[in-house]
Design a protein around this nucleic acid. Structure first.
Lengths: 226, 226
DNA sequence: CCAAAAGTGTTCTCGATACACCCATGT
DNA sequence: ACATGGGTGTATCGAGAACACTTTTGG
């Protein structure tokens, strides 16, 4: 690599004085069979987990920290979505939005935080836009990545995996085709155990094969922290 | 839409005091048959067009303005890439990167600005990362969008279009398959004129059909300015 | 008539879709 | 024995890749 022209660069570029910066996180999961988002009460409505990032750490780390503070959860997946400049009253705020995922069934340790159906009303306009965009991104990524991994517990059956896909995509999928594709992709590892949970044939358990999360090409390799 | 809980939101979130914010723009084009990037001299190396955005406008507009100031060009396409928090000497800077495109053959009115081959050395580490990522994004988008449009002049031949694709992708394409796909996509409009430019059969001219730039789903619809 | 780029069709492979029945278990 | 969800195979279609010759012009 080349040396960094840090001095010349900063001399010319930095110091715009002070921008207000705000991080907002769309934390999604599948909860009770519907795509759900973590929300905090805000007056008579709801808001997304948010906060001002600490100044001296990568943004991703700051987002993780804020998410832990507001919801008590450590996400399984975090991806930057988009940066906006919004007019909030008199001031303009630089707003950096993130998509985070946790495994289906995760509780919310922080008492005020709740899971809402992703289609719920009661969010502010900006939060609503960010939330809608997060859903679009998640759906797109389910198609060509293994993000679904981060919505699943350690072990699961193929039917459970299909349910998560169907919920997140709000679309029915063919069982045989789904299984064929998933197996063919090589991202699953078959376990020996089976799950017995009713008066019917037990289901074989699977887990995701290590090193099978290409993380997609939408997020740069470095992804902050440089 | 729901009312915005602006007061409650800002009370809780804003005021992190002052973050230094910097915008960097990767302006790409095809120049002399190679993928090229607009660069400005920086000591004995080069830097990307950059600057501090004006505080009271959407980031996209600020980026456009900075690009015009530094290169004298008005881009045909602008897309946000990624936001980083980088450690520049003692200070941390919030760095918002953009990808911009202009038509092949555009000159650079500002005297210091030059077109460099996109693979050139002499950029700082951060600029290099941002540049590499911009190229990956452009290549990915050529596959499933009509961004190539913004790299072409008003009218062009199929061979010229193919040349741009081949340059940007650094990959050879089959002439017949390329034409079939491009025509089948319906994004081109055949013109009556032909271009005579040598001792050989003249080529039919095309232009992009209006309203055929789905702008991809990677960029949110609102894309700033809310 | 020769050089140079424009233009044009067919075959093959592979991934995606549609679709219906038998299997293992608990009660 | 029956109800319940688990599990499997085959035929069809369309998109993408490989591949070579004829056409039109200027010199």
């Amino acid at each position: 690599m080349n040396r960094e022209h840090a001095t010349a660069q900063s001399a010319r570029s930095s110091f715009g004085g002070g921008f207000a910066v705000d991080v907002r996180i769309v934390l999604l999961t599948v909860h009770d069979g519907s795509l759900s988002v973590a929300a905090l009460p805000d007056g008579d409505g709801w808001q997304l987990p948010r906060g001002v990032p600490l100044a001296s750490m990568p943004l991703d780390s700051a987002a993780r920290l804020l998410l832990a503070e507001t919801t008590g959860l450590h996400e399984d997946y975090l991806e930057q979505l988009y940066t906006l400049h919004v007019n909030d009253g008199d001031d303009w705020i630089v707003l950096i939005s993130y998509l985070a995922l946790v495994a289906s069934g995760s509780g919310l340790p922080v008492t005020e935080a709740v899971w809402l159906a992703a289609s719920s009303t009661g969010f502010g306009d900006v939060d609503r836009m960010v939330l809608d965009y997060a859903i679009v991104r998640l759906q797109a990524k389910l198609g060509y990545t293994t993000v679904a991994f981060h919505l699943m517990p350690e072990q699961f059956t193929l039917t459970e995996l299909q349910d998560v896909y169907e919920t997140a995509l709000s679309m029915q999928l063919d069982k045989r085709n789904f299984r064929r594709r998933i197996i063919a992709s090589g991202m699953l590892e078959q376990l020996d155990e089976k799950r017995r949970d009713g008066s019917h044939r037990p289901a074989r358990l699977y887990r995701f094969r290590a090193g099978h999360d290409p993380q997609a090409y939408l997020t740069p390799q470095w992804a902050d922290g440089a």
